[in-house]
């Protein structure tokens, strides 16, 4: 199987918790520059699949490739070094650090060696880059505020900004729209689309907000009972009877 042309390749991933088969033989590819949506009702296996891809849970069977490299069993920091960024379902910033420090932290491990970071500049030479990113996510007016003092939506934006700081080729976004108000949601979508366009970055998005995911993604995979039940463009998914059944329980 050619895994080189795909940014992410997932092959026959299965994961069970006791008798519960959370994910069963799931395979899919994500191409460069694509925004793939991963949707499904609660308990469909989305988060388990995400955890298997990100190395936070070991799949019982199957393989995950990033840019053709097997990443099975690699810890998160190594995946990040391979160009995989992520956001979290729950707010995940460093609350006692300022916005700019949060963003510098998100990039500093990609600059220099461990020892050069000890003896080099305190900002690892990243202040300009971090400031550009705060501007891009309209957080520049909050530059020196503690991240914990920001509103929920602002922290979600900061979370996204941190995922992009190291210039990842692949970003996995776990419910980026969760708990975010409509105005902020539009803004977040605009930023994600702009970043995708400008950097040809690849996204995989888990999301419950159908409006958001349908307008953001170019392709959508639907999971139910741990299996892929549908795959296609947003319009194809909207019209798919299996998907409607899975969501409405018909």
């Amino acid at each position: 199987m050619n895994t080189q042309s795909n940014v992410l390749s997932v092959h026959n991933i299965s994961k069970a918790f006791g008798a519960i088969k959370a994910v069963q033989n799931v395979s899919f590819e994500v191409h460069k520059g694509e925004i793939l949506g991963l949707i499904g009702p609660n308990g469909s296996g989305k988060s388990t699949l995400f955890n298997c891809i990100l190395g936070q849970s070991s799949p019982d069977t199957g393989e995950v490739y990033v840019n053709g490299k097997s990443v099975a069993g690699r810890p998160s920091h190594q995946l990040n070094k391979l160009g995989v960024g992520r956001t979290f379902q729950q707010l995940s910033v460093f609350p006692k650090m300022t916005v700019i420090d949060n963003i510098i932290m998100a990039g500093q491990e990609h600059h220099g060696t461990m020892f050069s970071r000890l003896f080099g500049a305190s900002d690892a030479g990243l202040t300009d880059e971090a400031e550009q990113l705060t501007e891009f996510f309209k957080l520049d007016h909050l530059r020196d505020e503690e991240a914990g003092s920001l509103s929920y939506g602002q922290q979600k934006l900061l979370d996204a900004a941190m995922a992009f700081m190291a210039g990842p080729g692949l970003v996995l976004l776990d419910e980026p729209a969760g708990g975010v108000n409509l105005t902020m949601l539009e803004y977040l979508k605009d930023r994600l689309l702009t970043y995708n366009r400008e950097h040809d970055a690849t996204f995989v998005v888990i999301e419950h907000n159908m409006e958001f995911v349908m307008s953001l993604c170019t392709r959508i995979i639907v999971l139910a009972g741990g299996e892929i039940i549908a795959e296609g463009t947003p319009d194809e998914i909207r019209a798919n009877d299996l998907v409607i059944q899975a969501y409405l329980g018909g």
Partner: peptide, 19 residues
């Protein structure tokens, strides 16, 4: 900064490339 990140949110810090 890395020590503080480790204190505040080790899982997030790890996902940002910090060993």
């Amino acid at each position: 900064r890395a020590f503080k990140a480790l204190r505040e949110n080790p899982i997030r810090a790890n996902s940002l490339g910090l060993n």
